[in-house]
């Protein structure tokens, strides 16, 4: 059981990163991006298709990340261009449509879970340390380290650089940000592109463990949203923690035969519990008349 929980930590680090990407997109450009993991999966499959054809893995990784960044940037530009003045729910609905379309295209291009599982490179699969019967694979420190690095880097970027201050201003008052000379559309597209590239890297990190089919990897959005909800779509440290907890829960559930087959339900349970917990003091008329 401890081995499963430890193994779950490597997924947890990756989930934390996915949650961070959701939170960043929401905080900085006010969009709940349902298409995020589908874009990441698209980049990841471009990469694995190249490695299958003998392209060097690092070059393929770079091309895959660039593809995801470009695709995400194009979606961001379209939302900025045509949906800037619309409500958050409309923009979220647009990303749901993109998610459905991308998943259909991805499954068509790269195959579903019965036909198209690809073999992703797994450079961090070897154990880094073994204590008694507990094995800690390299992927655990790598995933957690990557998650910590991105959390700290984003925190520093937002608070210590002129660009970060502009991004904060943009998230707080988009209209005012524009009239004080902050190039809101360019920054928004930059955020979308950055999030696309990071998501692709995370998808590549978890693909060897989750199985390399497009539908499964694209469906990671439910996990990402659950993790983002732990951080209330705001707090970066809480989102990081949420990712690790979800990874451990998933590891724990995989070690118990009786509940293993319901493992995929874990993110939805987390979302359900958080929705109930956060709304427990709401009065129906007040909360829903806004």
């Amino acid at each position: 059981m401890v081995n499963s929980v430890i193994a779950g930590l490597s997924s947890g680090g990756a989930y934390a990163l996915l949650g961070l990407c959701v939170v960043l997109t929401y905080r900085l450009v006010a969009v709940v991006n349902f298409a995020m993991t589908a874009v990441g999966a698209m980049g990841a499959f471009v990469m694995v298709s190249l490695t299958d054809r003998g392209v060097n893995v690092w070059l393929a990784l770079l091309i895959g990340a660039a593809t995801a960044a470009l695709l995400s940037g194009v979606f961001g530009a379209a939302l900025v261009r045509w949906f800037a003045g619309h409500r958050e729910r409309t923009k979220a609905a647009v990303t749901v449509a993109l998610y459905v379309a991308l998943t259909a295209i991805g499954v068509r291009l790269f195959g579903g879970n019965s036909t198209g599982a690809h073999r992703f490179p797994n450079p961090f699969g070897d154990p880094v340390v073994t204590v008694g019967s507990v094995v800690v694979p390299q992927s655990v420190p790598v995933a957690i380290g990557f998650a910590l690095l991105i959390t700290v880097a984003v925190g520093l970027l937002l608070t210590r650089t002129r660009l970060g201050l502009k991004l904060q201003a943009l998230s707080e008052r988009p209209g005012t940000a524009e009239v004080v000379g902050i190039p809101a559309p360019r920054l928004a597209v930059g955020v979308w592109a950055g999030v696309g590239a990071i998501t692709m890297l995370v998808v590549v990190l978890v693909a060897p463990r989750l199985g390399g089919d497009f539908g499964t990897l694209s469906g990671l959005i439910s996990t990402a949203l659950a993790v983002a909800m732990v951080g209330a779509f705001r707090s970066l440290p809480l989102t990081l923690l949420g990712g690790l907890i979800l990874g451990c829960l998933e590891g724990l559930s995989s070690s118990m035969d009786s509940i293993q087959k319901y493992q995929g339900v874990v993110p939805f349970l987390v979302i359900l519990v958080l929705l109930w917990w956060r709304s427990r003091r709401e009065v129906w008329d007040t909360a829903h008349s806004r």
Binding site: R162, L165, K166, Q168, A169, E172, T176, A177, G181, I182
Partner: peptide, 18 residues
């Protein structure tokens, strides 16, 4: 009074400084 409320006074000025 459309300040960026979470930014400090100086940061509010810096984001629009040309």
């Amino acid at each position: 009074r459309t300040t960026f409320r979470t930014l400090t006074v100086e940061q509010n000025l810096l984001v629009s400084q040309s």
